[in-house]
Structure formats: structure tokens, C-alpha cells
Design a protein around this nucleic acid. Sequence first.
RNA 1: GGGCGGGUGGCGGAAUUGGCAGACGCGCUAGAUUUAGGAUCUAGUUCCCGUAAGGGAGUGGGGGUUCAAGUCCCCCCUCGCCCACCA
Length: 817
Amino acid sequence: MQESKVQEDAQHYPHEQVEKKWRAYWQDHQLHKPDLDNPGDKLYTLVMFSYPSGDKLHCGHWYNFGPTDTWARYHRLQGKDVFEPMGFDAFGLPAENYAIQHGIHPHESTQANINYMRKQLREIGAMYDWRNEVDTSDPEYYQWTQWIFLQLYHMGLAYKKKSPVNWCPSCETVLANEQVIDGKCERCDTPVVKKNLEQWFFKITEYAEELLEGLDRIDWPEKTKAMQRHWIGKSVGAEILFPLAANEEQTIRAFTTRPDTIFGATYMVLAPEHPLVEDITTEEQQDLVRDYVEKADKTSDIERLAEDREKTGVFTGAYAINPFTEEKIPIWIADYVLYTYGTGAIMAVPAHDERDYEFAQTYQLSIREVISPDGESHGTDQCYTDYGMLLNSGEYSGMASQEAIKRIAEDCEARDIGRASVQYRLRDWLISRQRYWGAPIPIVYCDKCGTVPVPEDHLPVELPRDLDLRNTRGTGVAPLGHSDEFVNTSCPECGGTARREIDTMDTFVDSSWYFLRYVDAHYADGPWNPNRVSTWLPVDQYVGGAEHATMHLLYARFVIKALHDKGLLDFDEPFTRLVHQGVITKDGAKMSKSRGNTVSPDEFIEQYGSDIFRMYLMFMGPYEEGGDWSDKGIVGIDRFVNRIWRLVQSFSEFTKETCEDDTLLHIMHSTIKQVREDTESFKFNTALSRIMEYVNTLYKADETEIARENLETLVLLLAPFAPHFTEELWEMLGHSPSIFEQRIPEYAEQYLQRSTVDMVVQVNGKVRDTFDIAADSSEEEIKQAAMSLEKIQNYIDGKDVVKTIVIPGRLINLVVK
RNA sequence: GGGCGGGUGGCGGAAUUGGCAGACGCGCUAGAUUUAGGAUCUAGUUCCCGUAAGGGAGUGGGGGUUCAAGUCCCCCCUCGCCCACCA
């Protein structure tokens, strides 16, 4: 048994020993460490850094990191100075929750996890530059996260305000809009409730327009750009003032994208939270209105979001004046109007808005048609929401919608009853978190001086270490509030007693600038090394999950734009090119512990090695779509690798240095071309299949024709995919390491052309035969050759060839009658 | 409800953008090798009829444009993701 195992191993590629050998070599020779101060042709390749959870690296990590390293290595083989850093997004709730459960300090558990993950990350065999590892929970790092907060504060982009915010009762913290999914906490799925709290925000809304505009300048997936555009949600329209009938001095501001429908505004609706509600409600309606407001307040987002929910509302008893028709129109309140969007009040045009139509029907409000396709009346049995021609609209009747929109907005402005206006769906970024494991917000409250920013030279505001987090839960006070040592401080301005802000920052603040830190992760004189940042940034290629489309990827763009406006950066888009890796599923479902369908990479790496594991991930399917994991599929890659292993072993001596066989040359050069194109564009699956075809060709070729050149080309093309394996093969071929000091082969146009081509003959569009012909044959020669084929004769005999289509080098189609 | 993607053999997936559908891999079948198994090599493998030669059908369904459609156009079914009362 043991003996046969040894024999077997002699045939089989010894992955374990080879991978160990080359990882040690790379490390000893400092191989993948670019000169960061004076790079040649630089390439900054970045993957989204990972959260150091207690788990091992999972398939998702591998799928993000392995193929990206392949892409980076491919560019290394083109002579680029590739910078590929790695670090840890180490702050966050899971570490804190784990700490509470197990009584371990989050710092301890996080460091333990980082140590473990770092070891695993080395097994990938990627070109990570560990000199510049980043740990966002290290004061060395987070002092600069706090510094960035201060920059935004001084720019007026960080402010505190009291407003209804999303509160997760289970996590005991507020959440940003982006972190609420279907009314539930993104992390724990607990329904989110509204709380009126004073919180810190970043004024991302001030950058709405720039964030939209910048999308046109970056090479990102269209889908992601569309998501960001939609999230920002720009609407162009007008704000129109509606005077109250009871007191014409007082007005209600309504935003509309359809000022052309103003003559059809037969009632108004305020959001229940609207401050005017209390003022205008008449005595008779007061009880009804109060009940409704109270009920709306209690209604959770989930209920409000419920599908086909009937529209409800109540009449306030008050009336407004439509400034164009001069009619008195009733003012209602209803929760289908959102206080957080636009002005929190709408002019309702039931004839031309589905929601208003539904509401008007329920409450018997009048519906007036003011737009139709042709300007003729078609009645109000249906709601017509398209643009068209105005009717029943006074002097504007007969005008086209687009024209009327402009004119009415202008006229509003002239009459001082409104103006053209743009609204965005985007809300300011709520960055306060009532949790411990994050960067403290560097603010101090002084009775005399008020809100005072911590001076830059007092940073970092360090987290207190001696806090037992278990005693802070459920107290209604954020954890840092339980540390007197932390809270009590002196005012940086007057020196008097003061209290520190006890909230910490959203971890998305940490990750909104880490890629600046990477180029000199231990730089002491500032958040980043300015020379290196201007050399290396922006990131040339960013790779990460699509789930960050409207979170991390939006926040990072905002922070960079703000820092750019402050004159601190000479670029304003952080990621020039972006690719999302797909999701690896198991049995069609997303892998998760709760489903019990996770695949542990470790098991497969032990059996096959990391090269084979990463290659299988790449071979499974298109990188941006992911694929379904199959335990069996990986053996195909294992066989492929061993076929190459035996091939190279059997050619210790070559009869030829360079290839002389025409067919082999042609195949080799077209393989080079296709593999290069596919690897460059993240089509790893087809790149690998091209290499497999090439290997199959070599197996079938006359072995005296196989030259050293053929095998070296194979090994070089494969190198980005299987770095350890190909280093070994390169050495077996008599070269000194490292293969990554080599250049990827170039293809020569002359070998892509062939002297004869295979042509298909179709008769009436159906394939009937094929034949070989000289590549430079004329159409007439091709036609003659095709028609003289015996099989073709049978089809055209006695018939007229009415048309002939020749696609040179591909096919000829004979149309017969 | 809106926006964006998809639907191709037993399976994962390929198809110079309109030009031989099913590359490559898994699985399966047969043969070689082997004491046997495994491994390896060779051949085959969309489906239907046929021993074969050959013929027919075929990319979710239906219609269309074209010499030629997986690819373009129209209608429908279906799955996935994102946003969901955004005025």
C-alpha cells in the first residue's frame, strides 16, 4: 500500500512541497515588493479588504483574491510595477458582539483573527506587499480617520442634527439609510424603528451632482453606475408656493417634476410629520388628524413598505389656493407623502399621477384632466401619466408638456411664487454609531464653548481599554459613556471641564480612505504619504463584491471628492476601473453557515494545492457571474495540471529550440493572442480553456516537432494562474527563478494567418459540406471549388443557383431554386 | 410597480457580435494498459430515426426581418438582482 503510494507520487505533481518552496523563495527574495517611491510603469491593483472574523477564509474571499492576483501577475509579466496590498477592516459590530458573548476584549479577538487570516492569506500565494498592511482598528490608523472627520468638519461637511433616524433595537445603534434593507437591519435582520435623535452626519448630499457627473468618467460596470445614479435619484422640476386660503401670507412649498400639470392640482397632501400640520388643522378635524399622525408615527417602515397597501389619509379642514387656477383646494395629510423627500408636501394631480389618482378615488376628490396625447379631452376613467399636450390650462392650453414645464417654472419665478428646482433622493450619511468598536468621533462638548473639535495634535482620541462591554448593554447609554476616564476631559479651547462625544464612527468611514494609506501604511507625518499618493493613486483596478454599490463605493467617492476640494488630493475619483466578482453558490444557493452549505477552501487546498483551487474557481464560469461549486469539477483542473507536469518532465531534452511546424506555430500564436486578451479582460474561464486546448494539441503532436519554445510559452501563459506550479516548471526547463521576472510571450501576426482555410458550404443556409482552399482564393475560385464538390452536386443538380454569398475564410452559401 | 441582467446537452459553461451551435471541463460509453482497483492513454458522447451511409429536429414559447438568427425586431412565459408610494 505504502509502496504503491510512493510510485504514484512520482507521477503526480507534488503540490505541497512545491508551493511551500516557492512561497519561501518569494519571501526570501523580497520578490513582489515594488519600489514605491520610484516605480516604473505602475499598476495599483486592489481588492476590497476583508473583515477579520473568527472564520477562516471562505470561498468568497478566495474568489475575490485569487483571480485578482492572477490579473495582477499577468501585468507583472508585462513589466508593470504592480502594487497589491492587503489589510483588515478591523472595526465593527461582530467583533464587539463576540467580545460581549465571550468576555474577550474586541482588540484581543480581532488581533487573533488577523494573525490567523494573515497566515491563510499567504497560502494564496498572491503578491501582497505585507510591508504596507493596514489595520483600521490600530490607533496608528484611526487617528487619521479622526483627522479626516475633522477636515470634513472644518469644511462644513460634518454636522450634528436631531432628526428621525433608523434605530436597530438589537444592535442598539442607529444605521445609515444605506444599511437598512427592506426596513430591516442589514446585519441582524431586526426591524428598524424610527427614533428622534441627535446624530452626526456627513453632508454627502452636497456632492450629489459631482457624484453623478464623475460616473461618466470612470470605467465601472454599467449596472453599478446605474445603481448609484438611482440611489442619488436626481429629479428636475419646480417648487411652487401655495398660499393658505385662511392666511395668504403663509404658504406651503410643494415640489413637483410636472409643473405642466399645475392646472390639475385639485388638492394638496402634507406628510404627517410636516410641521405645518399642527398650525393649519381646523378645530373640527383636530382629533382625526392627531390620531392619524400618531398612528403614522408608530407605523414601522416594514408596514409602510408593505405591498398593495391601501392609501390612507385625513382632511385637515384647511384649504390652499392653487396659484394658477386660483381655486380653493383642500389640504390633506397622508403617509404616502414622505417627509424626507422634496419638501414633504405635494400638489396632488389625480388625473396624471397614479398615487394621487388612487387617493382621489378613495376619498372622492375631484379629478381634472389637463394633459392628453393630442390636447383633446379623453376623460378621467384612466390616469394618464405620460407627457402630452395641455388642455384646461388657461393660456398654456395647447402647449406640449416639455415646453409647459419650462414656461410654468419661469412664470412662477417671475410671479415670485416658486422656482425651478432639483431634488435628490440621496440623504446625508449618518455616521454616528452607539457602539464601542469603532473610531471615536473627535468632538468635545464644553458648557462654555459648545461643540469643539479635538485639535489635530491631540489625536488619536483613543478607545479606553478597561471597559467591560457586558455592563453597557441595554442601559440606553452608548458604551463609551460608561467610561468616566474617557468622557471627562478638558475643553481644548477654554481648558474648562468638558465631555467627549461618546459615539463612534460608522466603519464605512474607515474604509473610505484606506487605499490612500496603503502606499505607505506606517507614514507618521500625515494620513498618507503625499508623494506616493500622487505617484500611485488613483487605484487602477479595484475588485470587490457588487453589494457595496451604494455603500462603500459611494462613500469612498464622496470622501475623496471632499479631500480633493480641500486641495489635499490631485484626483477626485478613487477607482479608475472596477470589476465585481460574482458569487460562488453551492447547490444554487448562496453559501452560508445557517444553510450549512459552505465549502471550506482548506480541505481542497490540502488535497490539490492553492494553484489548482484558484484555477478551478476561475474555470467554473465567467468571473463577474460566479458559479455553482461542484466538488467533482476540480479534478478536471487537477488532471490538467498533471498533464502539463508529465509533459514538461518528458521533455528534459529537446530536439528543437524553436518551433518549426506550421500548424503548431499557428496554434501557439493564436493561443497567446486569446489567452492574453481573455486574461486582460477578466475572462479567466476561457483563457484557461485556451491553454487546455493548447495542451491537448501538444499531446497529439508529433513529439519530435515539439520545441522548447512550445513548452516555455505554455508555462509563461499559465504563470499568472498557477504561480507556484509554473515557477517549478520554469526551473525544470533549466531557468533560474523567478518566472515573474520574465515577459509574457507576444504573438506574431504572420502566424495567425494560415495558407489554407477550412470553408463551410451551405446550400439554402444548411451546412452540406466543408473543404480546404488557399486563403487568398478569389470568390470565383471558392464558388467553383464549392460547386464541384460531389455532395454539393447532389443538392444543386438541375437547379438554378440564384445567389451566392461568400464570406472569405468562413463559408459560402449557395441559394438555389 | 420601476430599473437592470439572465434562460443554450445529463451538468458547469463556449460561440470574431449576424456566418459550421455545443469550444473547454465534469459525467458517461467503449477500447488499450493493469493481477485487480485507481491512475493514465485513445476514441466517442445535443436529441430523434437508421447497423451504417445518411436524414430530420434543435439555443424558454410564439411570430417577424435576412441568403444566413443563440445573436436583430415584436409579443408572451420564466428566473435572478437592485430600488421600491421619491411627487
